[in-house]
């Protein structure tokens, strides 16, 4: 019976202890600086090297480039850039290989939508997702 009493004592003490519940939707959840959230993509930095699409384990990145509009300059600029967040696992490998930090992680993580189609994020959306961008990459 002693064990039972000890247990009861323990739970009774907890009655008044500080609660750990986080009021999440009302109070935003702070994420540490390294948190891997939804990517931010800055098209002006991209050199269309295709490394992110190649390293992606789930092949959720699709991109196309087009020739540089300025005929003086060599290379390509980005034309379309889509990430399918239905299958993206936010593994951080795309940002790891990117040589110009055109694609970086942000601390934003709220991706819930009402339709699967909305989970295909295009270049513009990813460009606009420019808050809480991760510093270290």
């Amino acid at each position: 019976m002693l064990g039972l009493a000890k247990g009861l004592g323990y739970t009774f003490k907890k009655l008044t202890e500080k609660k750990v519940t986080h009021f999440y939707p009302d109070v935003p959840f702070p994420m540490p600086p390294r948190f891997r959230g939804i990517q931010h993509f800055s098209p002006e930095k991209c050199i269309v090297c295709n490394q992110c699409a190649r390293v992606c384990p789930t092949e959720c990145i699709q991109l196309t480039g087009k020739p540089h509009p300025d005929p003086e300059k060599k290379g390509k600029i980005i034309d379309t850039y889509d990430i399918n967040f239905e299958i993206c696992i936010l593994c951080d490998l795309c940002t790891e290989v990117c040589p110009t930090e055109a694609i970086v992680m942000t601390n934003n993580f709220e991706l819930a939508v009402y339709s699967r189609d909305e989970l295909y994020k295009d270049l513009k959306w990813l460009d606009d997702n420019n808050t809480n961008v991760r510093e270290e990459n």
């Binding site: 739970t11 907890k14 519940t21």
Partner: peptide
């Protein structure tokens, strides 16, 4: 409520 409090919830 009571069980919640005892389990550090609200």
């Amino acid at each position: 409520k009571v069980i919640g409090w005892m389990q550090l919830r609200i």
